[in-house]
Design a protein around this nucleic acid. Structure first.
Lengths: 339, 339
DNA sequence: ATGAAAGCGCTAACAC
DNA sequence: GTGTTAGCGCTTTCAT
């Protein structure tokens, strides 16, 4: 193990140590072209002894190829996104592509910046959450000359490919199921995130479908920050004190829904008889709660897988469907009457 | 907006479009050296109109500088790691360094591979979870010639710098608090992860401290996979049926602890009178549960921040303390008698 | 099966 | 303040 100077080892070092030309060393290290077993051994041995780590920067510049896929998501703490990432990794691991994650915190300008930074490394593809981006970001995506998959939403026009569910439709379906179950005094509890377009679209779809049946949301409340479970609990209490006639609560995510459920159970309220509940996402995490919250899977892992497949196929020059709408089904659980 | 060919724009394109030399364009784009306001404008205008995105690959090769920090963690779904990442980002955002995340799934060979891949991009520093790595990985870290911070554990010898808590000590402290509260029939419920060295060390510290007082764990059980909340519930039930005389359950993480707590509450068991409970991590998520679970903060965000500070300082050529032990305090919550 | 030369797109270092 | 030159460490291409 060498490298005592503060300089990285180069192909040349391996070349000298093994007495083989740089070019052949390069071939061995990349498994390309024919190299005799003998020289191959010598090279490998030298590389290992020296502790040589190839310089991908130089390699990428010379070959004009980078096996990186930029994955741009709003947040890591949301639980939803690590699952998407899981799906992406699962597929990319079968190729020589690697995901690189960038986080935007739901801020359009930060998204633009992160995208710019990532594109400056010339990745082979981009997977980005959502269909809403700044004009500059859209322009960059269009001009990058690489496959781009927008995920987790299909209510809009993609720059290139898109994979996900329709949140408008998800909202509508849930509204229909709630009405069908006979609830009419409906409250909505959500996050105060004007920039979470998917939550917004769900809300719009929800109210729209209610309106079609002549029903209006009776009360609503939005929170930001803090523990979602706790917030759900607090908001539920506040809302029911304010509007006791409510018979259904639709939560914009499962976590606050779970908080609401725990509160109601403590109050001895009959779920789903007296009050029904539903959340969104189908997070596995919450199995193990006293009741199973009605919810709707956002097809997170699946979206990730599809997106990665599209990138992989395109990079390989294959043709592949570029618009994929996934259709989640309602999980009624124990908190929404089934009709 | 140009770039219709399938070739990325280069500095040369901007140079030609603006009538300024490549070198000066480069200076403008990097804000380096003196450039007259006039030419600066012209360059910026041309770059923007063309939609030029610099090629960091070429830039990095030429300048021998890469503003990336490799962050290598076992998992993203564990909730713990996104928080560490948050701390890292928080600090790096004040510098021009950027974190790049690699995930190992708790597999040493995968860690080795991820590390190799990341080092081949010649990052400015490495932040890596844990002190246990393959010999090859340790050699790579040592030879990389860049600052390396091992985080989330200080029970061992670091390659370079380390930041985190002592899990052995955490286990010991919890054992002492439990004994002091008067519990003696203690059960342990954990994850079946031989490769999670931190959990292992906590367990060792725990049993060691008990042993010092002549106490032995009365029952133990380990799980793998599935929803932690649900597993906690199931394991708790199973263990109490098997060993009804238990008066305390120590869970290796808060999530299964919460599951256990929910089960016990449903059974109408008095917590912490009849049975006491404690978990580990202090996850904010769980606020909002009926009782606050006793736990111990792992100083996740703090660890991330410190680690990033060490990297940033070292990259800037500054001197900085390279071993930082954070000392978590026990949060007694509502499930561990305070004495 | 192996090697030599050219160059990827940028920046450091040095002119002017 | 601006331009010129010479690489950075690889891979491509072509020769042998």
């Amino acid at each position: 193990m060498a490298n005592d100077e503060n300089r990285s080892l180069t192909l040349r070092d391996v070349s000298e140590a093994s007495g083989v030309s740089e070019m052949t060393v390069s071939r061995v290290l990349r498994n390309r072209g024919d190299v005799s077993a003998a020289t191959r051994e010598r090279v490998l041995k030298a590389a290992k002894e020296l502790g040589y780590v190839p310089n991908k920067i130089a390699g990428a510049l010379a070959s004009q190829r980078v096996n990186l896929v930029a994955v741009i998501i709003p947040s890591l703490s949301n639980m939803v996104f690590p699952e998407v990432l899981g799906g992406i990794s699962e597929v990319l691991e079968t190729t020589d592509l690697q995901p690189v994650v960038g986080v935007t915190d739901y801020l359009p300008e930060k998204e633009e910046k992160v995208l710019y930074e990532m594109l400056s490394w010339r990745p082979s593809g981009v997977i980005i959450a959502g269909l809403e981006h700044t004009d500059a970001a859209k322009a960059m995506l269009r001009n990058a000359g690489i496959p781009v998959v927008e995920i987790m939403d299909v209510d809009g026009k993609p720059v290139d490919a898109m994979v996900g569910i329709s949140h408008r439709r998800a909202g509508r379906e849930m509204a229909k199921a709630i009405l069908k179950a006979g609830y009419t005094n409906i409250g909505f509890l959500g996050t105060k995130m004007p920039l979470d377009h998917r939550a917004r679209k769900r809300f719009e779809g929800f109210t729209e479908a209610l309106a079609k049946s002549g029903v209006e949301i009776m009360d609503q409340e939005f929170y930001s920050g803090g523990s979602a479970l706790l917030k759900g609990r607090e908001m539920t209490q506040a809302m029911l004190e304010r509007t006791p006639e409510l018979d259904f609560l639709y939560f914009s995510n499962d976590m606050i829904g779970a908080g609401g459920m725990l509160y109601l159970l403590e109050q001895g309220i009959d779920i789903p008889g007296q009050i029904g509940l539903a959340g969104f996402n189908g997070v596995e995490l919450l199995q193990g709660l006293p009741r199973k919250l009605a919810s709707m899977d956002a097809c997170r892992r699946e979206s990730g897988r599809h997106a990665a497949q599209i990138i992989a196929a395109r990079v390989a020059g294959e043709d592949i469907e570029s618009v994929v709408e996934l259709t989640p089904k309602i999980a009624f659980g124990d908190t929404l009457k089934r009709r």
